[in-house]
Design a protein around this nucleic acid. Structure first.
Lengths: 107, 107
DNA sequence: CCTATACCTAGCCACATGGCTAACCATCTC
DNA sequence: GAGATGGTTAGCCATGTGGCTAGGTATAGG
């Protein structure tokens, strides 16, 4: 398989990286601004950004000294769809169980 | 923060574990049945199950020699809601950008 | 009671992850 | 062109993760 889901869920499994995503949803931002609220050395923080970019959750462009990051919404939607599908299957199963229970009650 | 989201996303960031979840959505199953389709030694596989249980995605009960696993749907729903909220914020932002663009066009 | 079954524990290994410091570009700004 | 600013690279370290083998425990079945 080796899905995007691997790298997506891996990328989201860290509060620093989720915070970056939440910030970027409000609009693009340069590295230094993203870094500011996190009590962590820049190189450590950059690793998180690299991971987000590798997972395709984020794009970045450099202009002069400044690298600006943008969010990439598609993977978010993809993961949400995956979860929604699991939930529907689960709910479908519950429905069948309910129906089964009712049919057994009749006997 | 140290959210459930940490352990949830961490748990889902592995194809073996996602496959277990997908299987359990169809209904409860014992360890050996869950293990069967995965080409991996049992102890390695057990670690994955422990991780799912630690993340609260799965419950398990032992009867005699057999431990049976059940899925726990709530965390799935919670993560789906988190993603949905992000998406709505994102879409809201796009709407505002569109409105802004239109208002600029009028000038 | 003996054996097979089903799972569990302990302990090892290689590699990934998440943090750091130190030192290094590159580009504005004065 | 000298400094300050914004990122980047290299390399170190501790811990976590994902795999393994070997061996153990507990119950089901004959």
């Amino acid at each position: 398989m080796a899905n995007h889901l691997d790298s997506f869920f891996g990328a989201m499994a860290d509060p620093t990286r989720r915070a970056v995503i939440e910030r970027l949803i409000a609009g693009p931002a340069p590295v230094s601004e993203l870094h500011a609220p996190h009590d962590m050395a820049l190189p450590s923080f950059l690793k998180h950004l690299k991971r987000l970019e590798a997972a395709g959750l984020v794009r970045s462009e450099k202009a002069g000294r400044v690298r600006t990051l943008h969010i990439e919404a598609a993977p978010l939607a993809e993961a949400e769809n995956w979860l929604a599908r699991q939930r529907r299957l689960w709910e479908g199963r519950l429905d069948r169980l309910t129906a089964l229970a009712e049919s057994l009650d009749k006997d």
